[in-house]
Amino acid sequence: MTRIAYRDIDTLSGEARALAAERGALNVYRALANADRVFTGWMAAGREHLTSRVLPERLRELVILRTAHLMDSRYEIAQHTGVAERAGVSTAELAALADGLSATFDDVELAALRLTTELVNTGHVHADVFDQVHQALGTEATVELLMVVAHWAGLALMLNALQVDVDAHARISMPREGS
């Protein structure tokens, strides 16, 4: 049971309401919308991650789910499993993200997941692990990948701190670029 009251989407200001509604009016948005002064900026940042095409969607979702497992976020796992499946992540791969990493990931995915694991678990990354990702993805995508880890690791903290309930039925609706 959440530790703070969920906001009613209809009582939010115009932009906050539009951003929350676009993504399915989930409990996480209704909880964080209590912080009126910073909610839309956080939503805008997340929206850009979900609409950017710099990282392949499958890679982004692998990194989000790996982060979610390492941060013990049942909420993120519940909301992103369907997104990952639609991006081509198999049931066996979903299981592998929970405990160690399977052989079906390609080399780039494995490098990204190793970086994610080390960074979330220790707060740092060895130079060779970092360089492997940088060489495979280039600078722009590496920065985005780090920002994705940061965004969903931070979100996991918030979900845990506020004890946001997993939505009974609602699942995230993905924003579309430019809309």
């Binding site: 209590n34 910073v38 918030m158």
Partner: peptide, 23 residues
């Protein structure tokens, strides 16, 4: 309620940013 939610959001921002900076 508003400020405790914003506090959690603030921690989220700098916790995540520290990961990027350290990496």
């Amino acid at each position: 309620t508003e400020a405790v939610t914003e506090l959690v959001l603030l921690v989220n921002l700098y916790y995540g940013l520290a990961l990027i900076l350290n990496a």
